[in-house]
Design a protein around this nucleic acid. Structure first.
Lengths: 203, 203
DNA sequence: TAACCGTGCCTAGAGGCACTAGGCAAAGGG
DNA sequence: CCCTTTGCCTAGTGCCTCTAGGCACGGTTA
């Protein structure tokens, strides 16, 4: 029987493509084997198990993600950088949904976060905000707000969470405009004492 | 053999509890049957299949979610409503992760969105922003921004996406403060109307 | 109280997927 | 050309979803 020429690389790449087609969590070793015209067991020579495969896909995906984000913001600053970053982010998330989902992998985010590309995406995010001149607690808060918004928006958009007839792209652009304005007028952390009166305590 | 007293209701509720413990996508009919001390096949008298069960859990979860959000914003407006809404949102997402994930169900969001509770959550979100006095394209854009931010933040927080030592709760509070400021100075869709000068004083 | 029936939970079984153990033969080095 | 490596195989286990059909439990009625 002719050999299929499998390698960990090729298996991982095929898994990433499959993830973009059917969803990251629906990637199955059986389906992957079928795609290669090979029996399931054959894949275990190249990949330890499903978890290992997922991790490989995630690492590869976050690499590609970091590359795109980095290229987008290179040589830009302020509003320009923000929009370029956001555009690259959304484009990747919508165009490579499986890979994007892989970067957000639930059970093993540590491996991804600890990878050089994982840290690079965070650094790129911080760098994107550099020109807004925020100091440290505020800077991290702003980064978290941005990540949350981008992650949430693309997730809702991808899952059809926006039902209103208003164009999604327009909302995205307005949201970016709003975030830009917000970053320029970021409320520094010193008004805790203003409006209270029973407020909010959590556990 | 003593009967277990199963009903679609009880099965759904147990599934929701199980989802909160092990994650929505890890809910299995086998595990559920085990929990009831019953064979798998027995559940199929009460629930059509796994997909049906998931949908039931989603509908029940979105109902509970709407109720909490509605109770939180009742009798409040502006900043007060925003913070109450946000607090209820995050609390639900973190405390009932399985149910929250169910409300965001990927393959069948239509059923959830079309449900009365699904539409109610959206209405509550719009109502929360009422006092900010935004007009229509802007209002929907603002609602989408809020939903994205809340969804993204809680999702990242739940999956351990925030590695920086900065307290997550503090970032959440600052993000809300920032969104409040943003809503008060929402950049209208015409031009970037320079948002006054200060930006620090809000109320 | 006894026969009766609906249905709640059962057994049996098919098919899909993750994963392991062990075998054979193709590729490549001596 | 032999020999080793190793790529892909067959066989088999266990967990999962889901279907078909059976039995007895519980309340209903005579």
């Amino acid at each position: 029987m002719a050999r299929a020429g499998l390698t960990a690389e090729r298996v991982t790449e095929a898994a990433a493509d499959l993830a973009d087609e059917v969803g990251f969590e629906n990637v199955t070793l059986s389906a992957l084997a079928r795609r290669f015209g090979v029996k399931d067991a054959s894949l275990y020579s190249h990949v330890r198990n499903l978890r290992d495969l997922r991790t490989r896909v995630a690492l590869r995906a976050v690499e590609e993600f970091a590359e795109r984000l980095g290229a987008a913001v290179a040589g830009r600053a302020g509003r320009d950088a923000l929009f370029a970053f956001a555009h690259a982010y959304r484009e990747f998330a919508l165009e490579r949904p499986g890979r994007y989902a892989a970067t957000q992998m639930r059970p093993v985010p540590d491996v991804v976060a600890a990878s050089s590309a994982g840290r690079r995406t965070i650094e790129i995010t911080y760098a994107t905000l550099r020109a807004y001149g925020l100091a440290e607690p505020d800077l991290t808060d702003a980064v978290r707000l941005l990540r949350s918004t981008f992650h949430g928006f693309t997730g809702l958009e991808a899952s059809g969470g926006f039902g209103h007839p208003r164009g999604v792209r327009e909302s995205w652009e307005r949201a970016l405009e709003a975030l830009h304005v917000l970053l320029e007028h970021w409320p520094s952390a010193d008004r805790e004492t203003a409006v209270n009166g029973g407020g909010k305590e959590t556990t």
